[in-house]
Amino acid sequence: MNAVELFVGAGGLGMAVSQAGFKPQLVVDWDPWACDTIRQNKKAGLAPFTTWPLVQGDVRDVSFSNISKTIDLVTGGPPCQPFSMGGLHRAFLDERDMFPQAIRAVRELQPKAFVFENVKGLTRASFSSYLEYICLQLQYPSLTAKTKEPWHDHFLRLEDYKARGKIRGLQYKVAMRVLNAANYGVPQKRERILIVGFRSDMNVTWEYPIHTHSNDALLWSQWRSGEYWERHKVAKRHRPDDESGKARAQKLKAPPAETPWVTVRDAIADLPDPELHPLLAKAFPDHRFQPGARTYPGHTGSPLDEPAKTLKAGVHGVPGGENMLRRTDGTVRYFTVRESARLQTFPDEMIFHGSWSETMRQLGNAVPTKLAHVIVQRVHDRLKGTS
């Protein structure tokens, strides 16, 4: 099955698309640093980058008419700054809003399915009407806005079209949900909105996958069975003083059925601390100490024995708390590029192009590959009729 990946960035969602069995016919991004990251990995022979037909440029200038093969899936993460907590919150007034281009791709390529992701901020009350407008456009992509028609007028026409029930032409069944990556085995509490659609003639029934990991299971393994500390060989005197976690664990009557959340310690335990052991850290690519980390109210770092906080790209520079590790003794340091890549479930073999701050921007904008794979694999299986 063939796919088109828009706004690929560092490739978190794109890798999941290839891993699920789709063949990319077009991969697009405008950012030169992210494109250089893809090119470097392609040159190094790292799959799946070796087969990606990458186009660096503005998606608004991309013509889909040159694609001769039938496209089964369109995916992408339209730039999220208009909706993120760190952005200017301008939504449809923001020229960086690329959802119109995602909708254009669906309209022109008419794929069997699509998957678009974005920040949880898109679900805020101030954007609720615009989010509904996006979903209606994806549901009826052929009913386009008229020249100079305000978005809210187009929105009302779409609502009226749906209410009349006389639907003709291209139509999709659209579902939307906010998923926490930690609930699917990602060592990071990263909430993303996933919008999934299937062309109506496919007669596909879609349900989002149930979560496989839980905080309760982690608390049980830490404060009831003790398996977590034994596995990591952490003596009692070096364990965090987590009274609330202990209290919650004591209320659990039986071991939860889910797998424990994956923690920062789980993700980076085999990597030497680059500040405490810089010579040993040199043996690992992109694993160098970055000075300057400090704490202040609201920016206390990610605890070692929980999933990390959401890594951030930083519109006005790298923020303090989200991209820091907080050790059990209370000291902090910035995550290295390699550690951040692990928190986003990128492969260790992957090369990142650019300085630490530039690479952290790429990683902060990315979708965790493991979360993306859970969704895209399920879409693939639905299209194949295997699940």
Rank of each mutant, 00 (worst) to 15 (best):
M1I: 08
N2D: 04
A3S: 04
A3I: 00
E5D: 08
L6A: 03
K23H: 10
D29H: 02
D29S: 03
P32Q: 12
A34N: 06
C35G: 03
I38S: 11
A44P: 14
T50P: 12
D58H: 09
R60V: 11
V62L: 04
I67G: 13
D72L: 13
L73H: 01
V74E: 05
T75I: 02
C80R: 04
C80N: 00
P82G: 00
P82R: 00
R96I: 07
F99P: 06
A102P: 13
I103P: 12
Q110C: 06
F114Q: 04
F116T: 12
N118D: 06
G121E: 00
L122M: 11
T123Y: 14
R124D: 05
L138F: 05
P141L: 05
L143Q: 05
K146C: 15
K148G: 09
W151P: 15
Y161S: 12
I167T: 09
G169L: 10
L170Q: 07
Q171A: 13
K173Q: 05
V174S: 01
V174R: 06
A175P: 14
M176E: 14
R177F: 00
A182K: 11
V186D: 00
F198G: 14
Y208N: 06
T212P: 08
L219D: 03
W220E: 01
G226E: 03
K236R: 10
D241Y: 15
E243P: 15
S244A: 12
A257E: 02
W261V: 04
T263A: 09
V264H: 04
D266K: 06
P274E: 11
A281S: 08
A281H: 03
P285I: 02
H287V: 07
R288C: 14
F289T: 11
A293E: 01
T295F: 07
D305S: 08
K309T: 14
G314N: 00
V318C: 14
V318H: 08
M324S: 06
G330E: 00
T336D: 10
T336L: 08
V337Y: 07
A341W: 04
D348A: 11
M350F: 13
M350I: 13
Q362V: 12
L363D: 03
N365S: 05
L371F: 10
V374K: 12
I375G: 11
R378A: 13
D381K: 15
S387E: 05
